[in-house]
Simulated scan of single mutants.
Amino acid sequence: MRSVLKFFRIFIFIALASSFAFAADPSVPQEGGKQYAEVVGGNNALFSKDDLANPYLYGGPEVEAIKGWGIGSPNAIGLGEIFTLLQGHYFATVFALLIVCVPLAFLGHFVMIGQRKFSHGKKIRVFSGYNIFVHWATAIPFVLICLTGLVMVFGDKLGGGAFVRLARDVHGIATILFVIFGVLMFLMWVKDALPKAYDIQWLMIMGGYLSKENKPIPAGKFNAGQKMWFWVCTLGGFVMAISGAYMFFQFADIDTLRLMALVHNGLGFLVIALLITHIYMAVFAIEGALHSIIDGKMGEEEIAILHSYYYKELTSA
């Protein structure tokens, strides 16, 4: 308990310190009407002298230069043009469409197809206590990362300020926890998540989720959809952690930082869409599915239908 309280105090201190350290608002004109970038040095010391001397990247002229950019324009410098275009006009829009359209699609599925129901008489232990602990120790920080990431994406719409800065700090702390437990989860389930030939059959019938009929589905301990989520969550999550570290600490040249931002957002689209899918499948699509990763047990009928190859392994053992 003492260690938890100590961590909480440290967290509050970091959050408060960050709110003072980043109190300036870039959207407010500075003294003499200058742009924020003209009066705040920031991390300029981390960049090369050549970059600092580039009028299209630093100082006042870059504001007007960016306004005149177009695809293939003579003012394009490195990835600056495509980054500015995507960051300024498309990234937030795509995230908004995902968090609205994906849940609406699943709402349609729930209304038309409905929840899969199975007998919960005899149960079989599928996950150990260690599996359950590592899963939730990875999942909770991961969800926090996604939520705080969206807060930052829509920071200007939320008014900026202390709330968005706090989200940024929580984002960084949660990332550290995710990487630690994410490695453990990767090692724990990587063998079960390796692709099998019958995964192609699962994909061809969309796991049977477009039908109300309960008949055996070709899947092992994890079906093809769960395997896809595993690889995006772990390997994709690690790539996002690396690209996020580059952006947070800015220990690279400006063009590399732009590339990291493009990669980070691109993977972010996939992560958000699949996270919503994972939550829908676990909470709504299958009755009682969430309990399997709480108490470690699944109904025998559910395993026999939705994980038929895994059920054959269990019954033949």
Rank of each mutant, 00 (worst) to 15 (best):
residue 141 P to D: 02
residue 129 G to V: 00
residue 132 I to V: 10
residue 166 L to N: 09
residue 133 F to A: 10
residue 150 L to W: 06
residue 139 A to R: 02
residue 137 A to F: 14
residue 130 Y to V: 11
residue 131 N to Q: 14
residue 156 D to N: 12
residue 128 S to G: 10
residue 127 F to G: 07
residue 124 I to E: 02
residue 148 T to P: 05
residue 167 A to C: 03
residue 147 L to F: 04
residue 150 L to Q: 08
residue 131 N to C: 07
residue 165 R to A: 00
residue 156 D to R: 12
residue 176 I to Q: 13
residue 140 I to L: 12
residue 165 R to V: 02
residue 179 V to Y: 12
residue 168 R to S: 09
residue 171 H to T: 04
residue 173 I to P: 09
residue 166 L to C: 08
residue 155 G to C: 05
residue 161 G to C: 05
residue 132 I to G: 06
residue 176 I to H: 14
residue 179 V to G: 12
residue 164 V to I: 09
residue 166 L to G: 04
residue 161 G to Y: 06
residue 160 G to P: 05
residue 124 I to P: 01
residue 138 T to V: 00
residue 172 G to L: 03
residue 182 G to C: 05
residue 150 L to H: 09
residue 142 F to I: 05
residue 162 A to T: 15
residue 171 H to L: 03
residue 162 A to Y: 03
residue 126 V to N: 13
residue 145 I to N: 13
residue 160 G to Q: 04
residue 130 Y to W: 14
residue 140 I to A: 09
residue 177 L to C: 14
residue 157 K to E: 13
residue 149 G to C: 06
residue 168 R to C: 00
residue 164 V to P: 06
residue 159 G to P: 10
residue 130 Y to I: 07
residue 180 I to D: 11
residue 144 L to A: 14
residue 137 A to I: 07
residue 150 L to M: 13
residue 164 V to S: 13
residue 161 G to L: 03
residue 181 F to P: 03
residue 145 I to Y: 02
residue 158 L to M: 15
residue 132 I to S: 05
residue 183 V to E: 13
residue 135 H to R: 08
residue 158 L to S: 11
residue 175 T to Y: 00
residue 170 V to S: 00
residue 171 H to F: 01
residue 167 A to L: 01
residue 167 A to W: 05
residue 159 G to E: 06
residue 178 F to N: 06
residue 136 W to H: 12
residue 136 W to A: 03
residue 172 G to H: 10
residue 133 F to D: 01
residue 141 P to E: 01
residue 158 L to W: 11
residue 163 F to L: 15
residue 131 N to F: 02
residue 152 M to E: 07
residue 151 V to N: 04
residue 171 H to R: 05
residue 134 V to D: 14
residue 183 V to L: 15
residue 170 V to L: 06
residue 150 L to N: 06
residue 181 F to Q: 02
residue 132 I to N: 07
residue 164 V to D: 09
residue 166 L to V: 11
residue 128 S to N: 11
residue 167 A to R: 01
residue 169 D to T: 14
residue 152 M to G: 08
residue 126 V to Q: 13
residue 134 V to A: 12
